[in-house]
């Protein structure tokens, strides 16, 4: 599956377009991580647990978007965009969307 965040897949021609596909997920870390993050907030520095959480969430969202595109018969997703929302405290809510296309 090709994925780009520009309008084309360089070196390929777009044959078919299937419209917008998207993937989203909400994930949380266990409370121990939250407490650690609270402590870390005093000293500063990278919150490894949360970085990890964001990476996991993003990967999961991309995987879901790719699954949706594959179901439609696409082999590439162009113009991929990430976005977030915030409902739950301490949870990562990521969604990713793009246009599913078939290139050749």
């Amino acid at each position: 599956m090709y994925m780009t965040n520009i309008e084309t897949v360089p070196g390929k021609t777009i044959i078919d377009c299937y419209g917008v596909v998207s993937g989203s997920t909400v994930r949380a870390k266990h409370v121990g991580r939250d407490i650690m993050a609270g402590i870390k907030n005093v000293f500063g520095g990278e919150l490894r647990g949360y970085t990890e959480l964001l990476n996991e969430s993003r990967d999961e969202a991309i995987k879901r978007m790719q699954a949706q595109a594959a179901e439609l018969g696409a082999n590439a997703i162009i113009n991929v965009r990430f976005s977030t929302s915030s409902i739950a405290a301490g949870a990562a809510e990521i969604y990713v969307y793009g246009t599913a296309v078939r290139v050749g």
Partner: peptide
């Protein structure tokens, strides 16, 4: 869910 972690369905 956010106490134990994982996807918040």
């Amino acid at each position: 869910r956010s106490l134990v972690g994982g996807p918040v369905a």
